[in-house]
Design a protein around this nucleic acid. Structure first.
Length: 899
RNA sequence: GGGCGAAUAGCUCAGCUGGUCCAGAGCGCCUGCCUUACACGCAGGAUGUCGGGGGUUCGAAUCCCUCUUCGCCCACCA
């Protein structure tokens, strides 16, 4: 390791190579730690066909941070990755490709089409995985699965059969959400309700006996062609006399009855509802109750079907809507049109308006599965972060509805059901059925299963279930589930149910739901809005660590991450800058650990000095060899370890990151390294101690930061003296807080020195003292800290000469520290007595004000008697300090002869 | 229609179990500096009725009520 580090950190030069080394070392697999307790995070499998977007960037970074943290703490950590075949999404992509060639899937036929998808998946399917590696994901790729793998497919069939045998899977004709573009059924969760500005039309239906009409209100007039009744509330006085009468349905020219049903809301619309059992869920139920016929008026593509009058056949549903309205208008039966805002279902994949449609589908009975899953939450065994999400979960579980699991697609797990047309038998089987008991050849159900029907099982199928594998025994149940709130119901809730049903235990105890990445207008990032950020572009420009730091730092628990797609610089510069800062701290530290001036780390001198510090805090350095600043930085470092560790544990990753950030940048770089430079550079006594403290605190900072910024921290750590070839920061034990490191006196005393340096700098800036010019400083009190750090004060505040004693009478600038110490800087011609009086006067007024409120507080009997003693004592101290400061200022003002 | 969350510096947000962080960070802004680790930097500076109103308390940005404004989730009002 003879390279000299360049002054600017260049992530691309190290990231790829480092990642390869991590992979080669097997660091990501838990198998090397057979005796350690496991820690398992299941990776939400990304779609095979997807490319990385910022949402992935966020969720996988969070997971990697937790994974690395637990791994560094010594657990046998398994972050188990996989990819999802993503039925609809993938099929859509391939169908689009085909469309460009002028083909449809039907031209190819089922087998050829499936082959085509497989080819596509094999060639481009691992893009997302490659990209996950680019951002540093430390998943165990040796265990990577695909939801269509043979063993996972077997498990899917096993589950289907078991649920079927238990009576929890059934087939039936029900109203489902149908996507006329994807040509498949959707589950309730896949049909996303969106508020849209629509209209509501009031249509007159003439009574068959010619005695008048009844007016119905509808948002989908075209469906009237499939009406088989008009319903009113039984107690509605306006209509009671019409119940049982017939209506002459316009256009369709059919007679339909007026019926009474409790489900009708008298307040809404006209209080009379057209009933279309084949195209509306509520109407379907009403139809069931009243044994109404259901007329399907639409083709799968949502065009008006053969069942409607010729004039309307073949029209798209929206054109049909216009034509129906026009027809009503022409007949004088259109009563009114109003604007109406309402929720309309949209396909979660292609955003097409969903059409409720009557069809034969397979369903899972959910209520029995939900019971134990809900109980786990009620018992406190399953916990949500943020907590309020738990109530959403419980609410969904309590009102759960059956799950439509069949999809009219070709890409996915084919439903393991065979129908024998000869004897009418239905066969549900784990293995393919080629012959029915009656001797004839049955046909398999054409449909495939919902994508989520395989992904809800992955917490155990990815470990080998239904086989009793060693992995399954060791890694189930897992621990934490990290994901976006959007798929709480799609996936998380169902995984809990599947875990309870098939493994007898919940699959994880903590569900951490992080925020969403949004743009500055708080809109979700999406392709269609064009407001996305490409994480790979960010990595290329700023490095993976910068990307990771930015999303982690921007994410408080339960809040969204706001990034500006139009200004990557502003969004990611903090991360890049921090990486660069750390890099340069590293340059300074490393170039001085190996002895002076050779710019190379790991030399004999460095090795000799640093080795004794490899473990805990420097016991080897006797306390009396440590200077004030050394004791201070060790104490600060220890505080950082406590804070960062605690926050990692509590999933407050932003707090953890900021604790380390603050330590590295403010404490270590701005103060300690500046303080220690002379000892570092020179050969003066204390140099060894300084190097040891620098090396140890720097190493700890690298460790604590590694989960968030793995590349740069490992790159620097490896360059520390005495590292074996190929050793990585991931191998070292996570630092433990050390009581011996805390040092209140050092924190207080070095704090005074900092305050003093700042005060002098402030005066210099205010009076415009030239940067190069040294000033003479007089300190009222010969505090040991000032004496010890005189050199530091001199260098950092550009002070030429320090003396102690009462302020001098001649004009100069003054300041008072919190402990009452007064400072005086002779500035000669630069000082304007009047200005100085003003400054001191303002300070005097400010402090006097504070003293008044402080005195009032302490004069309050209620406060003194009721507040805890230590609070009162603290307030007294504060008052004493303020009083002292004011006295010093008053004295000085008198000296200067201020009014 | 139900349930829930958020309103703090110009911007994006921290502030976890009411009292040291006399209200913080990053970015942006102003002033001065290429000080031999870093100009992706250093030093200094400005800006807040902690959404409005009420209450509990010795004490509230922090707890309660209410109003206003945003946002989320759920729901078969056609």
């Amino acid at each position: 390791m003879t390279d000299t580090l360049p002054p600017q950190y260049n992530p691309s030069s190290i990231e790829a190579e480092l990642y390869q080394q991590w992979l080669a070392s097997g660091a990501f697999a838990p198998d090397g730690r057979p005796r350690r307790p496991p820690f398992v995070i299941m990776m939400p499998p990304p779609n095979v066909t997807s490319v990385l977007h910022m949402g992935h960037g966020l969720t996988y970074t969070v997971q990697d941070v937790l994974t690395r943290f637990q791994r560094m703490r010594g657990l046998a950590t398994l972050w188990l990755p996989g990819t999802d075949h993503a039925g609809i999404a993938t099929q859509n992509v391939v169908e689009k490709q085909l469309a460009r060639e002028g083909l449809t899937r039907f031209d190819l036929g089922r087998t050829a089409f499936e082959q085509r998808v497989w080819d596509f998946v094999r060639t481009t399917g691992d893009t997302i995985i490659r990209q996950l590696k680019v951002i540093g994901s430390s998943a165990d790729w040796s265990r990577q699965y695909f939801t269509l793998d043979e063993d996972l497919s077997r498990a899917v069939r096993e589950v289907f059969v078991r649920l079927h045998d238990k009576g929890l899977i059934y087939r039936g004709k029900y109203i489902i959400n149908w996507c006329p573009r994807c040509l498949t059924a959707l589950s309730n969760e896949e049909a996303e309700k969106e508020e849209v500005d629509g209209r509501i039309w009031s249509l007159r239906y003439p009574l068959a006996d010619g005695s008048g009409h009844i007016t119905v209100a509808t948002t989908r007039p075209e469906t009237m062609l499939g009406d088989t009744a008009v319903a009113v509330h039984p107690a509605d006085k306006r209509y009671r006399h019409l119940i049982g009468k017939m209506v002459r349905l316009p256009l369709a020219d059919r007679e339909i009855p007026i019926i009474a049903d409790d489900a009708i809301d008298r307040e809404f619309g006209t209080g009379a509802v057209k009933v279309t059992p084949a195209h509306d869920p509520l109407d379907f139920e009403i139809g069931q109750r009243h044994r109404l016929p259901a007329i399907d008026i639409m083709t799968p593509e949502a065009r008006l079907a053969e069942t409607v009058p010729e004039a309307f056949r073949g029209l798209d549903r929206f054109d049909g809507r216009k034509r129906v309205v026009q027809a009503f208008e022409a007949l004088g039966l259109l009563e009114k049109v109003e604007n109406h805002r309402h929720g309309v279902g949209h396909c979660y994949r292609c955003e097409t308006v969903v059409e409720p449609r009557l069809s034969d589908q397979w369903f899972v009975k959910m209520a029995p599965l939900a019971k134990p899953a809900l109980q786990a939450y009620r018992d406190g065994r399953l916990r949500f972060i943020p907590e309020r999400r738990g109530e959403e979960y419980a609410n969904w579980m309590e009102n759960i509805r059956d799950w439509c699991i069949s999809r009219q697609l070709w890409w996915g797990h084919r439903i393991p059901v065979w129908y024998c047309d000869a004897c009418g038998k239905t066969i549900v089987s784990r293995t393919d059925v080629s012959r029915c008991a009656c001797g004839s050849v049955p046909r398999q159900d054409e449909d495939v299963l919902d994508t989520w029907f395989s992904s809800w099982l992955v917490t155990f199928t990815s470990l080998g279930w239904p086989e009793r594998t060693a992995d399954l025994a060791r890694y189930y149940p897992g621990h934490v589930m990290v994901t976006a709130p959007e798929i709480l119901f799609f996936w998380v809730a169902r995984m809990v149910m599947a875990g309870c049903e098939f493994m007898g235990d919940i699959p994880f105890h903590t569900v951490y739901l992080h925020g969403t990445v949004r743009d500055t207008q708080h809109r979700k990032m999406s392709k269609s809005l064009g407001n996305g950020i490409d994480p790979i572009e960010v990595v290329e420009k700023f490095g993976a660590d910068a990307l990771r730091y930015t999303v982690i730092a921007g994410m408080a628990v339960g809040t969204d991450v706001i990034l500006d797609p139009n200004d990557l610089e502003t969004s990611f510069a903090p991360g890049r800058n921090f990486a660069n800062k750390l890099w340069n701290v590293g340059r300074l530290v490393l170039s001085n650990l190996a002895g002076q001036g050779d710019g190379e780390a790991g030399g004999e001198a460095g090795r000799r000095v640093v080795r004794p510090l490899a473990g805990e805090y420097p016991d080897v350095i006797h306390r009396n060899e440590l200077g004030l600043a050394d004791r201070w930085i060790i104490a600060r470092c220890d505080a950082m370890v406590r804070e960062a560790t605690a926050n990692y544990e509590k999933y407050r990753l932003n707090e953890a990151a900021s604790a380390v950030y603050h330590f590295i940048w403010s404490d270590l770089a701005d103060w300690y390294l500046e303080q220690v430079k002379p000892r570092l550079y020179g050969t003066q006594p204390g140099g060894d101690v300084a190097r040891a403290v620098v090396a140890r605190t720097f190493e700890i900072a690298l460790q604590l930061l590694h989960p968030v910024m793995p590349f740069i921290t490992d790159a620097l750590w490896r360059r520390l003296p005495g590292r074996a070839l190929g050793a990585t920061v991931m191998d070292v034990a996570w630092p433990r807080p050390d009581r011996r490191a805390s040092d209140d006196a050092a924190e207080r005393d070095f704090g005074l020195v900092q305050e003093l340096v700042s005060a002098v700098r402030q005066i210099r800036a205010e009076y415009g003292v030239e940067p190069g010019r040294q000033v003479a400083l007089r300190i009222s009190q010969r505090h040991p800290a000032f004496v010890e750090e005189e050199g530091t004060i001199a260098r950092l505040a550009k002070v030429g000469q320090v003396s102690y004693g009462a302020p001098l009478a001649e004009p100069g600038a003054n300041a008072v520290l919190k402990d009452g110490t007064s400072l005086y800087i002779a500035l000669g011609e630069l000082v304007d007595v009047r200005k100085e009086c003003e400054r001191l006067g303002a300070e005097f007024a400010r402090l006097t004000q504070l003293i008044q409120t402080q005195e009032a507080k302490l004069a309050n009997q209620n406060f003194v008697s009721r507040a805890p003693a230590e609070i009162v004592a603290r307030e007294r101290e504060k008052l004493a300090s303020l009083t002292q400061q004011v006295a010093s200022i008053a004295e000085k003002r008198q000296q200067l002869g201020c009014g």
